[in-house]
C-alpha cells in the first residue's frame, strides 16, 4: 500500500518536473502564425486595409479579428495564399481593395518642394531623404508606392509615376495559341 503510494507520488513529481522544464525551455514567444501571415503580405505598408502597416494587419488576421480580403496591393494572389495558410475559403476582395494598381513610385517635383519634411515623416519605409528647408527626394529603389506621402504634402508636389517595364523586369506572357476545331468541339461537348 505505502509502496504503491510512494511510486505514484514519485512518478507524479518526476513527470511534473519534466513538463515544467519543457514549458520553460520550449516556450513559444508570441503567435507564430503572425510571422507566417506577415511573410505573405506584400510589405507595402500602405495602410489601405485599415491597419497601420502590414504587421498590425497580420496580427489582426492571426487573431481572427480581420478578414483576409483587405490587402489591395496584394490582390487576389495574396488573398488566396492567406486562405491556403489559414485553411479558410477564399473570399472576393473587399470593394476598396478590388482595384488593382500598376507598380508605382513617388516622384517629388523639386521645383515646387518647399522642404517642409512632412512627406518623409509619413514614409513608412524611410524612402524619402531631405531636411528642413532642403529639397526632398525619393529613393526609387526603396519606394513601395504606398501613397502615404501624398496627403501630408502642403504644396501637392508629389506624383505617383508607374514603373516602366524594363528589360530586367520583363516577363513572358501566358501562352495563347489557336486550338484545333476538333478540340474546340470537345470542349463544347464536355462543358
Amino acid at each position: 500500500m505505502l509502496n504503491a503510494l510512494l511510486v505514484m507520488i514519485g512518478l507524479a513529481v518526476a513527470l511534473g518536473a519534466v513538463l515544467g522544464f519543457a514549458s520553460l525551455k520550449f516556450k513559444v514567444e508570441g503567435n507564430p502564425l503572425v510571422e507566417k501571415v506577415d511573410a505573405i503580405l506584400p510589405q507595402i505598408q500602405c495602410g489601405q486595409c485599415g491597419f497601420p502597416g502590414c504587421k498590425p494587419y497580420a496580427e489582426a488576421i492571426a487573431s481572427g479579428k480581420a478578414a483576409i480580403n483587405l490587402c489591395a496591393p496584394g490582390g487576389e494572389a495574396v488573398m488566396k495564399r492567406l486562405a491556403d495558410l489559414l485553411g479558410v475559403e477564399p473570399q472576393p476582395l473587399a470593394a476598396e481593395a478590388a482595384r488593382p494598381k500598376p507598380k508605382q513610385v513617388a516622384l517629388i517635383d523639386e521645383q515646387i518642394c518647399i522642404g517642409c519634411t512632412l512627406c518623409f515623416q509619413a514614409c513608412p519605409v524611410d524612402a524619402i531623404v531631405g531636411a528642413a528647408k532642403q529639397v526632398h527626394t525619393v529613393l526609387d529603389s526603396e519606394c513601395t508606392g504606398c501613397e502615404l506621402c501624398l496627403p501630408p504634402c502642403p504644396v501637392d508636389c508629389i506624383t505617383m509615376v508607374p514603373v516602366e517595364e524594363g528589360l530586367n523586369g520583363w516577363k513572358w506572357n501566358y501562352p495563347v495559341y489557336p486550338i484545333s476545331d476538333d478540340a474546340r468541339k470537345d470542349v463544347e461537348v464536355t462543358s
Binding site: 510589405q43 502597416g53 513608412p124 519605409v125
Partner: peptide, 21 residues
C-alpha cells in the same frame, strides 16, 4: 520560369521593405 523569377524579385523587395519599416 519568368513568373517564378518575378515572384522571387517581389519577395526580395517585400523583405527589404519589411526590414526598413
Amino acid at each position: 520560369k519568368s513568373e517564378i523569377h518575378a515572384q522571387e524579385r517581389d519577395r526580395k523587395a517585400s523583405e527589404r521593405a519589411r526590414e526598413r519599416h
